[in-house]
Write a protein that binds this DNA or RNA. Structure first.
Lengths: 165, 165
DNA sequence: CAATTTAGTCTCTTTATGCAACCATTTTCG
DNA sequence: CGAAAATGGTTGCATAAAGAGACTAAATTG
């Protein structure tokens, strides 16, 4: 049986438990493009119906999508992004920008997301401090958070000692 | 056979082709924590060895990790992040921040990534324009990029007409 | 209200993942 | 240096997930 990450004391693992299945992020990409109906997801993605059913259900269960009844002579559903789902824009953007740079390469971007005011592409996401200054990896440190398990505390300490976080 | 995304005219799909397998992002998480040896990945993750072998090889093939020979009496490898791999920090951060907010919840963060200068957590990644102003979804528009296929051009146009990108 | 489209479910085959045993090299240590 | 132990895998088998397509109930269209 496939290992589950839902017990892990790590936010990335928790995120993957919700988003990590094959197809899931492409379903969400479609939702960002405005797709709402089962059939439209299926046609655009070429995903099998049984898998799509499972993925939509999983995302609804976890609160990323909401099932909205739009039926006129009975019940009929559409799937729309919740605030939790819309907040994945940063994740999708980070992934897209990374692949634009390293996989497809500059000058070969399939789409551009632009600022309407200037018409120019939205700049890359960057880690900045509270003062707005750019942060380099060396300027950051990892610390156990309020939800850290003992194992997490030990790991963070060990990594810090090796100076390689 | 599982569908491959490598022919899709979409950077997110391309990213998933490299990073989308089960376990892959946790392998990269470990690499960010400074893990370099096969055995250490295996022990920390509890992943099976054959799958770990496949994942490390895949990441090396795609340029995310580099295999470095550190043998003293023969050849022995370590796996380290390349610049392409290090550039995934934004992706990992976006995922972590999203899950911190929506899955584990504020006040339950397993780890905190802090600015050394202030000791305070690094702020959330945000989409900003070239002028540094915060961008809302409504202020952005999607356009076909230089690498857009005909299908992509058509999709972007259709989505724009529906005003729901 | 009959025909067609939509949104699934069910079954079967193929592929991916997990587990455990096994093996070659590399490192450790007397 | 050389034997023992640790490291870094590979191989084979069991199980779970994904793909394809037939089938169905409900909703929409005309």
């Amino acid at each position: 049986m496939r290992r589950r990450f839902d017990k892990e004391n790590c936010s990335v693992a928790q995120a993957l438990e919700v988003l990590g299945d094959w197809w899931t992020l492409l379903v969400i990409r479609e939702a960002f493009f405005g797709v709402r109906r089962f059939g439209e997801f299926q046609a655009n993605l070429g995903i099998s119906k049984n898998v799509l059913t499972q993925r939509l259900g999983h995302l609804v269960d976890h609160g990323v999508l909401a099932q909205v009844d739009v039926g006129e002579h009975g019940t009929h559903y559409e799937y729309v992004l919740t605030p939790m789902g819309k907040d994945l824009l940063a994740v999708m953007t980070a992934l897209r920008q990374w692949a634009d740079r390293w996989v497809v390469g500059p000058g070969h971007e399939p789409i551009l997301v632009c600022d309407r005011r200037t018409g120019r592409p939205v700049p890359r996401l960057q880690l900045r401090g509270e003062d707005g200054e750019l942060l380099r990896a060396a300027q950051m440190e990892v610390r156990p958070g309020p939800g850290a398990s003992k194992a997490t505390v030990a790991r963070v300490r060990r990594a810090a000692m090796q100076g390689r976080v």
